[in-house]
C-alpha cells in the first residue's frame, strides 16, 4: 500500500525510541530526525515536515514527563496525532443530498485522473441510490469526450457532451441545465487538466464554475506528485472553491507524501481514494483508520486517537 514504507519507518523509529533505556531529549531528537527523513523521502512537503517536528517538540516536554511506559505512549500518541492533523483539516466535506440537484465539478492537473474518477464517483453514488449523470466539459484534450462516453456507457450512467462545441462553459451550462430539468441528483462536471502557470486555463476553470454554480468542487490529485503539489493545490484553491480532495493512483508505488500536501494547501478534506483503473477501484477515505493502517496496525495497535 502507498505510504506503507513511510508507515513502517515511522513505526521503526517509534519502536527504537521505546527500546531506549531512558527517553530523553537526545532520544526524542533522534526519533524526530528519523521520522522527518522518512517523511521527506515520501515526498511530504518540506515546510509541513518542519512544522511537524517543531510542533512535537513544543507539545512534548520530555524532561518533565513521567518516566517509563507512559512517556513512550505519549510520544507515540503525539506522532500519531501530528500525522492525523496533517491529513485532517477539521472540516466536514460536502454531503450530496437526495431529491435535489447537487452539481459537482472536478478540477485538477493534467492527467491526475479526473475523468476516470468522475465515473467512479458517479458509480459509487449510483449504488447508494442517487440518480447520477456526467457532463464532459473538457473540449481540449484529444478524445476526452469519447473517454467519458465509453466510461459512462460501461457504468450505465447518462452523459452529456459535444464533439463540436469548443466552449467548455457553454457545454457545462447546457449539460447541467438538462440534467437538472430531468431530476438528476448528482450532476458531475468533468473539466480539462490545467496548471497554475497558464493563466488562461485558470480563467477558463473559473468560467466553467461561474456557468454551473457548483455545490461542490473536488480537486483530484495524483498520489505520485512531488514537491510541486503544495503550490499547485493552493493555486487551484485560490481560483475556485475547492471543497474536497480525491487522491488517485494509490495502487501504484507512489510515495504519496506530496499529495498529502493538498490537504494543508486547500484546507479541504480527502474524501475518497482511487486504487486502480477500474470503476470499482474507489474507496472512502477516513483519516484515523488510514493513519493507523499506514503505521501498520499490528505493530502499534490502538495508536490512532479516539
Amino acid at each position: 500500500m502507498v505510504l506503507a514504507d513511510l508507515g513502517s519507518r515511522v513505526a521503526v523509529a517509534l519502536r527504537k525510541m521505546a527500546q531506549a533505556p531512558l527517553v530523553d531529549k537526545d532520544v526524542l531528537n533522534e526519533m524526530l530526525t528519523e521520522i522527518c527523513k522518512a517523511l521527506l523521502q515520501a515526498d511530504v512537503n518540506v515546510a509541513q515536515v518542519k512544522h511537524l517536528r517543531e510542533s512535537i517538540k513544543k507539545n512534548v516536554d520530555v524532561e518533565s514527563l513521567a518516566s517509563g511506559m507512559n512517556k513512550r505512549k505519549m510520544l507515540e500518541q503525539a506522532v500519531c496525532n501530528e500525522l492525523c492533523s496533517m491529513l485532517d483539516p477539521g472540516k466536514e466535506p460536502y454531503a450530496p443530498k437526495k431529491k435535489q440537484a447537487n452539481v459537482i465539478m472536478f478540477v485538477g492537473l493534467q492527467g491526475a485522473g479526473k475523468t476516470t474518477t468522475c465515473t467512479k464517483y458517479a458509480y459509487m453514488h449510483k449504488r447508494k441510490g442517487f440518480k447520477c449523470a456526467l457532463v464532459c466539459a473538457d473540449t481540449f484534450r484529444a478524445g476526452a469526450f469519447d473517454q467519458l462516453k465509453q466510461n459512462a456507457t460501461k457504468a450505465k450512467i447518462p452523459f452529456y457532451g459535444s464533439y463540436t462545441e469548443t466552449d467548455p462553459a457553454q457545454i457545462a451550462a447546457e449539460g447541467t441545465a438538462k440534467f437538472r430539468e430531468e431530476g438528476y441528483e448528482i450532476i458531475i462536471v468533468d473539466t480539462s487538466g490545467r496548471h497554475m502557470q497558464e493563466a488562461a486555463l485558470f480563467e477558463e476553470m473559473q468560467q466553467v464554475s461561474d456557468a454551473v454554480a457548483p455545490d461542490e468542487v473536488i480537486f483530484v490529485m495524483d498520489s505520485s506528485i512531488g514537491q510541486a503539489a503544495h503550490e499547485q493545490a493552493s493555486a487551484f484553491k485560490k481560483k475556485v472553491a475547492v471543497g474536497s480532495v480525491i487522491i488517485t493512483k494509490l495502487d501504484g508505488h507512489a510515495k504519496g507524501g506530496g499529495a498529502l500536501s493538498a490537504v494543508a494547501a486547500t484546507g479541504a478534506p480527502i474524501t475518497h481514494i482511487g486504487t486502480g483503473e477500474h470503476v470499482e477501484d474507489f474507496e472512502d477515505f477516513e483519516v484515523k483508520s488510514f493513519v493507523s493502517r499506514m503505521l501498520g496496525k499490528g505493530n502499534i495497535a490502538g495508536l490512532a486517537p479516539e
Binding site: R141, A142, G143, D146, Q147, L148, K149, Q150, E277
Partner: peptide
C-alpha cells in the same frame, strides 16, 4: 487497447 478513448485520442492527433 485498454483505456477508454485511447484509440480515439490517437485518431484525433493523427487527423490534426
Amino acid at each position: 487497447t485498454f483505456r477508454s478513448g485511447a484509440v480515439e485520442q490517437l485518431r484525433v492527433h493523427a487527423q490534426a
